[in-house]
Design a protein around this nucleic acid. Sequence first.
DNA 1: GATAATGATTGCGC
DNA 2: GCGCAATCATTATC
Length: 334
Amino acid sequence: MVGTSSPSTLSELLNEVLKINEQTLDDNDNSKKQALHVHPMRQALFDVLCETKEKTVLSVRNPVDEAPEDPQLMRLDNMLVAEGVAGPDKGGTLGSDASGGDQADYRQKLHQIRVVYNDELRKYEDACAEFTQHVRSLLKDQSQVRPIAHKEIERMVYIIQKKFSGIQVQLKQSTCEAVMILRSRFLDARRKRRNFSKQATEVLNEYFYGHLSNPYPSEEAKEDLARQCNITVSQVSNWFGNKRIRYKKNMAKAQEEASIYAAKKNAHVTLGGMAGNPYGMLPGAAAGLLNPYQMTSIPGQDTLHMGMPPFDLSVYNPQLMAQYQQQMENNDKS
DNA sequence: GATAATGATTGCGC
DNA sequence: GCGCAATCATTATC
């Protein structure tokens, strides 16, 4: 029937359109297309078909309205923002313990990841927009010959965007992995310690032996020491933690060291008074003599000697202290 | 290369 | 959250 003569009735035209819809139009079958396009009932029937289709599609739930936020995608997004890859550039702060050089290196590497990520993301977005536009125009073209509901187009767009979203998730995942690898590398690098400068160690030791009776610097004191030594407050805390433990463990050597710092302090006192020692009455290791550790741990001195050592506390002399210790050891032997 | 020294980390208790 | 103790990992010294 089709092809030989134009459809004369509404039902004939409908059958014709449905057939065409099923088979899709063959570009070579121009006469058939032509016949349809010029039929006086064409527009009316086409409108009816569109309306019917629109009603049918309306009953289908719109996936766009109901799509829940993908929790995995949300996690990835949050992480990328937190790490400074997505969102505003935070400069890639590592930890306060990382050294300056490492920080700069880390920032540079993170910036590279950020650039690559944003570049790829833009490419995907552009490709997605381009493909969506292409499909839209294709559907628009097809709407000339078959009824296409608006919701149908939106659904198609949604499917396309979901496909591209899947690719984006992969991109975000691999970016997160890259950041994790970078982070772990630099966190490991933090273990690559460098010894503090001699000057910094001097400052810390002076404070420690100057406060042996209470070697627990306050937060303010730690900040002050950190400034003086050009290290972080947590490094100061670490140093004091280690120092207290090791002082206890190796009292003999610590005593020797205490004498050195006491002598230094003494020289300072002679020259400049008691400035800088909040325990003014007990300069240097003299304060250490009253510290709780010494009462139990000095080799050869298992108990605290009740008698005070033979020196004047106000002008502590390390040599006299050494003599005193020697004397006590001799007493223990005899 | 062995050893000591030292800064950092971890697990635990308070 | 802080400090202690044990331990790890690196650096310095011999």
